[in-house]
Nucleic acid binder design. Structure first.
Lengths: 199, 199
DNA sequence: CATCCTACCAAACAACTGTTTGTTTTGGGA
DNA sequence: TCCCAAAACAAACAGTTGTTTGGTAGGATG
């Protein structure tokens, strides 16, 4: 899964000057900024300082490269979410932390997280199921975070999750760096849910 | 803006067997289902029963075709929103109506509305500003609908708009026809905002 | 009926796409 | 030092992309 694409059987040691991380970084940057379909293998290869054909030593196809970036993206957002899940003081503070962590990993931390949200699984039909699985994996983490919250008994937690995740993910559309920080936005959104709009 | 691409000066009458609406419908369908970049002019031409080159009699470029679909999409969602803005009984009912209308136009009514939400303006750099303008035009309609709501004095209406629009628009990702209707979803989301999560 | 212009067809263009194939360089273990 | 596999180069492949150009059927109009 993570080693060279073709020499899996011989189990040889990788070299130190391996440029694979460079490839992944470049791919993540382009996928996040231009989208999957609008990024060519030549774009990625050029940014990594190599020829387009050389990418195929590391990945069997463009779609496989996307899977690798996607997986790394999920790994990073999950990692960013972990500390927010620690048994905190206030459950509302915990929800706010979860949202803030999600937003940070989504908007500022790296390109990897943005890829997970921006790129649609259907864009790579051959590996779509794997991408969906990766995304679900993360969303279940998010779901458990909400499940653990002590909310009023009649609360529709599924609707809450969909609403919150939607509002957060859509922020990728209008968010501009330098203005309100992810933490501020998270607090603002949670406040809207917490404080009743009806008196 | 809406007539033939090249013969704008001569101002001639269009013919009855004009297949332009067929083109627009086909383009809207493909743009909504596959996305802008993943749709080829051949796809659209084929679905409209004509050759790819023939599209260029009606539109100067693929991007101009997108603008036309986009504009029609905005027109339709705005039209769907209009009745919901009428001075209704309850302001909360009005907000719910607005959300339901938005969701309906977005998820079920037609492909045109989906294009406005799905296709990113950056995907067509040459006409990106015009697309943004069209989208803003609609979102201001939505904003005014929220502005008119009698809410508690300290309510952050901007955050409310961003949160609600985000949650609604993101539903395009997880919505499956035949399950909960747009109206039900709208009610559920508005309830979450209306009823306090904290007792 | 003759004409004109709308609305299309037919065929090609250059540029770009993901990918393959054969060859070469080069670092690390023996 | 030798040597092999890792990792890259160099160059092409077939297919697709948006678009252009020249020609033409056929409704509408006088």
């Amino acid at each position: 899964m993570s080693g060279p694409a073709r020499h899996a059987s011989t189990a040889a040691a990788p070299r130190a000057d391996n440029r694979l991380p460079l490839i992944l970084d470049a791919a993540a940057r382009f996928f996040a900024e231009k989208g999957y379909g609008y990024t060519s293998m030549r774009d990625i290869a050029g940014a990594a300082g190599m020829l387009p054909g050389s990418l195929y030593y590391h990945f069997a196809s463009k779609e496989e490269l996307l899977v690798a970036v996607y997986a790394e993206g999920v790994r990073r957002i999950k990692a960013a979410l972990a500390p927010a899940l620690a048994p905190d003081v206030d459950p509302w503070q915990r929800l706010e932390n979860v949202c803030a962590a999600h937003l940070t990993g989504l908007l500022e931390d790296s390109d990897y997280g943005q890829v997970v949200i921006r790129v649609r699984p259907d864009d790579a039909p051959e590996v779509a199921e794997r991408l969906v699985a990766l995304r679900d994996d993360y969303e279940q983490t998010f779901a458990r975070a909400i499940q653990a919250l002590p909310l009023p008994p009649r609360t529709d937690r599924r609707a809450l999750r969909l609403m919150l995740l939607g509002a957060l993910n859509w922020s990728q559309t209008w968010y501009r760096s330098g203005r309100d920080s992810p933490a501020v936005l998270a607090r603002r959104f949670v406040r809207l849910l917490r404080d009743p709009l009806e008196r």
